[in-house]
Simulated assay, not measured.
Amino acid sequence: MTGYYDREAVRYDATRGGRPRARAAATALAGLLGPPSGPVLDLAGGTGSVAAELTAAGHRVLVLDGSAGMLRLAAQRIPGRVVRGSLAALPVRTGSVSAVVAVWVLHLLPPELVAATMAEVARCLAPGGRFVSTVDKRAANHGTPRDPDATDCRDTVTRLAVHNGLTRYADGGFAGHGQRTDAGATPWYPLLCLGR
Rank of each mutant, 00 (worst) to 15 (best):
Ala102His: 05
His59Ala: 00
Glu8Ser: 08
Asp136Trp: 09
Ala25Leu: 10
Arg77Tyr: 12
Phe131Ala: 01
Thr55Asn: 00
Val61Asn: 02
Val63His: 14
Asn141Asp: 07
Asp182Gly: 07
Gly45Met: 09
Leu194Cys: 09
Arg60Gly: 04
Tyr169Leu: 05
Gly80Val: 12
Gly18Arg: 08
Thr94Ala: 11
Gly143Asn: 09
Leu41Tyr: 07
Met118Cys: 08
Ser86Asn: 04
Leu191Ser: 06
Met1Leu: 09
Thr55His: 04
Val82Asp: 02
Asp136Asn: 14
His107Trp: 12
Leu191Tyr: 14
Arg7Trp: 06
Tyr169Pro: 01
Arg123His: 06
Thr144Asn: 05
Met1Arg: 15
Tyr4Lys: 15
Arg138Gln: 07
Asp6Cys: 07
Thr55Trp: 10
Arg23Phe: 05
Asp155Pro: 13
Ala150Pro: 14
Ala183Gly: 08
Val101Leu: 04
Val10Gly: 08
Ala126Tyr: 11
Pro35Cys: 01
Arg72Leu: 06
Asp136Val: 06
Thr134Trp: 10
Arg60Thr: 13
Ala52Asp: 09
Gly85Ser: 08
Val50Trp: 07
Leu160Gly: 09
Arg16Phe: 02
Ala122Asp: 05
Pro190Met: 01
Ser96Thr: 14
Asp65Ile: 03
Gly31Trp: 10
Gln76Met: 01
Thr186Pro: 10
Asp147Trp: 11
Tyr4Val: 08
Arg81Gln: 12
Ala52Ser: 11
Ala102Asp: 03
Thr151Arg: 03
Arg180Asp: 00
Arg7Tyr: 03
Thr94Glu: 12
Ala14Asp: 14
Cys153Glu: 03
Pro79Arg: 14
Ala57Met: 15
His163Val: 05
Arg196Gln: 06
Leu33Ser: 12
Ser96Asn: 12
Val97Leu: 03
Arg123Ser: 00
Leu106Asn: 03
Arg77Phe: 10
Asp65Val: 04
Arg21Ala: 04
Ala24Gln: 11
Arg84Tyr: 12
Leu62Phe: 15
Ala14Tyr: 12
Pro111Phe: 01
Gly45Thr: 11
Asp149Gln: 12
Ala116Asp: 07
Arg81Val: 01
Leu109Asp: 07
Pro20Tyr: 03
Asp147Lys: 13
Ala161Gly: 15
Asp13Arg: 07
Gly34Pro: 15
Tyr5His: 13
Phe174Lys: 01
Trp188Ala: 00
Ala119Lys: 15
Arg154Tyr: 05
Thr144Gln: 13
Thr55Gln: 01
Ala25Ile: 12
Leu90Asn: 02
Ala14Thr: 14
Gly165Glu: 06
Arg16Glu: 03
Arg180Val: 03
Gln76Gly: 03
Leu32Trp: 15
Ala24Thr: 10
Ala139Pro: 08
Arg21Asn: 11
Pro145Phe: 06
Cys124Trp: 00
Gly172Ile: 04
Gly66Ser: 10
Thr27Met: 06
Thr94Tyr: 05
